[in-house]
Design a protein around this nucleic acid. Structure first.
Length: 267
DNA sequence: AACGTGCCCAACCGCGAAGTC
DNA sequence: AGACTTCGCGGTTGGGCACGT
């Protein structure tokens, strides 16, 4: 079954209605779900007979072997066909987030981090779309990285990670320090005394050329809220989202992997 | 050494979207 | 047309590890 990934083809109107923060979307979802009962929904699998929790090496191997031969598709039937006591959803997640041969693991580079921030400013919490611009990275990985690293970092810098607004009331010297490395020509005029705050590098520089998303930001001073807004306009809204890197149906090589229950997570 | 706390991240859950019957 | 099925997404959880006391 071939589908167009959700939100892949952003219409111009959608591009212009930048989802600064997930608020709107979430509120909508919330209000809808409050009015709908899902009591009739069937469980996605027979929970009695399915394994849950961390995957064992044997389970991984079964899934890899199966997909190596048959390719991805029809996740619901894969567990049975592959001899796994897992639900299809769990198989899909394990494959997509961990076993796929094209997954790039390891620490995020500065360029990747900057790109994530830029894309988040533009797309909000649409992790799958963001992941589509970062070859080898999964939405789950990016989401985790955002929540555990970037989010905190932005807060520390005095930037609201939800709406990407620079808060005015933050200890400026701290921000100066943090931005020092990336600060050069561009700066933001913040206060009446014309003190200047360097713009974080991810707001200044255009994206890496091969990412196909370009930015230009200007800042303005929002008197009422006493925040410095990194305006979304005029943005180059060439947000043509390319399809994520093609996934291999056949795995050629075994990849060194994963963490299993007993393995250590950290070095 | 023992305990508490915070962080990381794999995995789960619920739900909407899209396809099929 | 509408019920049902399947997929994919985003939010959340919980186990395990690192680090501080």
């Amino acid at each position: 079954m071939e589908r167009t990934p959700k939100g892949l083809d952003l219409s111009l109107s959608e591009k212009l209605q930048l989802p600064y923060g997930p608020g709107l979307h979430n509120n909508l979802t919330l209000s809808l779900s409050n009015n709908v009962t899902h009591a009739m929904r069937k469980p996605c699998c027979d929970k009695e007979r399915t394994n849950k929790g961390a995957w064992s090496k044997q389970e991984d191997q079964k899934l890899i072997d199966y997909i190596r031969v048959h390719g991805e598709g029809c996740w619901r039937s894969i567990p049975k066909a592959a001899g796994l006591h897992r639900c299809g959803k769990s198989c899909r997640l394990r494959w997509m987030n961990y076993l796929r041969p094209d997954i790039k693991r390891g620490v995020f580079g500065q360029d990747e981090e900057d790109l994530i921030i830029k894309l988040h400013a533009l797309l909000g919490n649409r992790w799958s779309l963001i992941a589509g611009r970062l070859p080898g990275r999964t939405d789950n990985e990016i989401k985790n990285y955002w929540n555990s690293h970037i989010r905190r970092k932005l807060i520390k810098m005095g930037i609201d990670p939800d709406n990407h607004k620079l808060q005015q009331r933050f200890p400026l010297p701290h921000v100066h320090q943090d931005y020092a490395a990336g600060a050069s020509s561009s700066s933001v005029s913040m206060n009446n005394d014309h003190s200047r705050v360097p713009v974080p590098p991810f707001f200044k520089s255009p994206c890496a050329p091969n990412n196909g998303v370009s930015f230009s930001s200007k800042c303005c001073h929002d008197e009422e809220e006493e925040t410095v807004m990194i305006s979304s306009s005029p943005l180059n809204l060439d947000l043509t989202i390319a399809l994520p890197s093609p996934r291999l149906a056949i795995i050629v090589e075994d990849k060194p992997t994963p963490n299993y229950e007993s393995s250590t997570k950290r070095s």
